[in-house]
Simulated assay, not measured.
Amino acid sequence: MIITLLAATASAETVTVTGVDDNGEMGIYNIAGQNYWWMCIEPGTPALNATISAESMSLLDGWDQQNLERLNIYQSDLSLYTTVIPKQVAVMSYVLDTYLPWSTLAGASGRFIEQDNSSASYGNNETFYNSMMAIQNFLAETHGKAVKSDFTNMSDYLDYFASLGTPVGDARSLMFQNMLTDVAAKDGANFFDTYTAQHGYLVINTLFAEAAPENWQDGLMIYSLAPVPEPGGAVLIACCGIVWMLRRRRFARA
């Protein structure tokens, strides 16, 4: 088994990333000599072979940090830090845990990178690619709804694949719709009030204004096979596969 060891510290840690291959929505980055998957949420993904840097922090701490305008939404109503952010983080963690399962999709060694990572394959009608793209859809929609806390009604979530009319589009749309139905039902039963992420998730970001050229650096990554411990010193975590989710503005698919 290939094991990558990363240090989890109480403070933000600088991460350097180089673009390897992508289709504009998901792709491969090289981090410290190893390749990892990413899925974008908003535009500005770095060009191939370009190198970027960002700071890493917990998903909970980083969910308001994607740009200054987003941060101002939460700073203007501090109650959102105890209501909306914990709820959205719980929902997003559940979707990642459930629809990108390490047990069946991460490969023999537990590393997602064992999947074919050529961008020419991303349109294949295969469970791994369909899962990545359906979750990217869900992540983009969740990120775009800064103050949403009621997930019993998911009618405000746009299905990017519903109108494609292809086997791949239909498969990804069905998976996305299953996510919406699943999340709505669980929220109706107050499931997310006590949900604990099954794996570790971190945010990487650099805090700029939304229109700043550097704004694309924000993202979310799957960090470990188990929840990341509370900050408190340099703790080494066995990390068997990382998925990078870089920011991408929501847009309508044709």
Rank of each mutant, 00 (worst) to 15 (best):
A108C: 03
V84C: 05
I85H: 04
F192R: 07
D61W: 00
L105K: 04
M39V: 15
L180C: 11
W216E: 04
V84E: 05
R248F: 06
N35K: 15
P227V: 01
A7T: 13
G19Q: 09
S58T: 14
E13V: 13
A134C: 09
R250C: 05
R247H: 08
Q34D: 12
T142H: 03
S163G: 10
F208M: 08
V95M: 09
V183N: 07
A254V: 13
G241D: 00
M179K: 08
A120H: 03
H199Y: 10
I204F: 01
Y94R: 03
L236E: 11
M175R: 15
A146D: 13
A209L: 09
N153I: 04
M132E: 00
A8Q: 12
R172G: 03
N137H: 06
S11L: 15
Y74T: 04
V20N: 00
T82H: 13
Y160A: 12
P227S: 02
K186R: 15
A140F: 03
T4M: 14
M26L: 10
K186G: 05
T4Q: 14
C239P: 00
V20C: 03
L202S: 07
M221Y: 03
T45C: 07
A254D: 10
M175S: 12
G24L: 10
D61F: 01
A234R: 14
L100G: 00
G44A: 01
E55A: 00
E141T: 06
A120V: 14
T9F: 03
S121V: 10
L80R: 14
F161C: 08
V84A: 10
A238T: 14
P167M: 09
P46L: 09
L60N: 07
N30P: 05
Y129V: 00
A140G: 15
Q65V: 00
S56Y: 00
G233D: 08
R248N: 09
A189G: 09
I222L: 12
V89G: 01
Y99I: 11
E25H: 07
K87R: 12
C239T: 14
T196L: 12
A7G: 06
M245V: 14
S76K: 12
K145T: 04
Y195M: 02
L96Q: 05
A108R: 05
C240S: 11
L207W: 04
V89Y: 01
P231S: 08
L96A: 01
M245A: 15
A50F: 11
G107D: 08
F251A: 08
M1C: 06
I52E: 08
N23A: 07
E126V: 12
G62R: 01
A47D: 07
D22R: 13
